[in-house]
Design a binder for these strands. Structure first.
Lengths: 66, 66
DNA sequence: TGCAAATGTAAAGAATATTTTACATTAGTC
DNA sequence: GACTAATGTAAAATATTCTTTACATTTGCA
């Protein structure tokens, strides 16, 4: 799965730590998500999409291997 | 977090096992998701939403406590 | 009623997500 | 070059998801 969190973060001028605090996770979790180190929970996806004002599908996208 | 998987399953006339096979998880995983026993991964949410032809937000909804 | 399919549930274990702490690296600014 | 904020990364610990196996309950139908 891919995601465009880094881009959205840039659009909204948020640091990883800013975003982490806003959605209630650690900064490393944001960093790891951006680096595709793991697949976040649906709650996180919904929170991030809501914060950025876009549908989940626009930020998180299934890959071939999913 | 709440979800309407059971309703969507009824609309599409799928058993828990049908759905489980289609998205590649065990039947118990579907059952537990419907019973809100845990929060599924974003990959599962995307697959389920795609299968039912609806946006993730329409099937999975944040609750107060999230 | 009796049968089969579907669903609910539970427990143990494997896999994965997330946190915490800690340090290295990068990029911008003075 | 020195300082600071932001980012990358890593390892250990904890929490959670998901699987497997197994059995009980429900539901619809012959």
């Amino acid at each position: 799965m891919k995601n465009s969190i880094k881009v959205e973060r840039a659009i909204h001028s948020l640091t990883q730590e800013d975003l982490a605090k806003k959605i209630g996770v650690s900064r490393q979790t944001i960093n790891a998500m951006e680096a595709n180190k793991y697949v976040p929970s649906t709650v996180l996806a919904l929170k991030i999409a809501k914060l950025f004002g876009k549908p989940v599908e626009e930020i998180f996208e299934l890959s071939e291997e999913d």
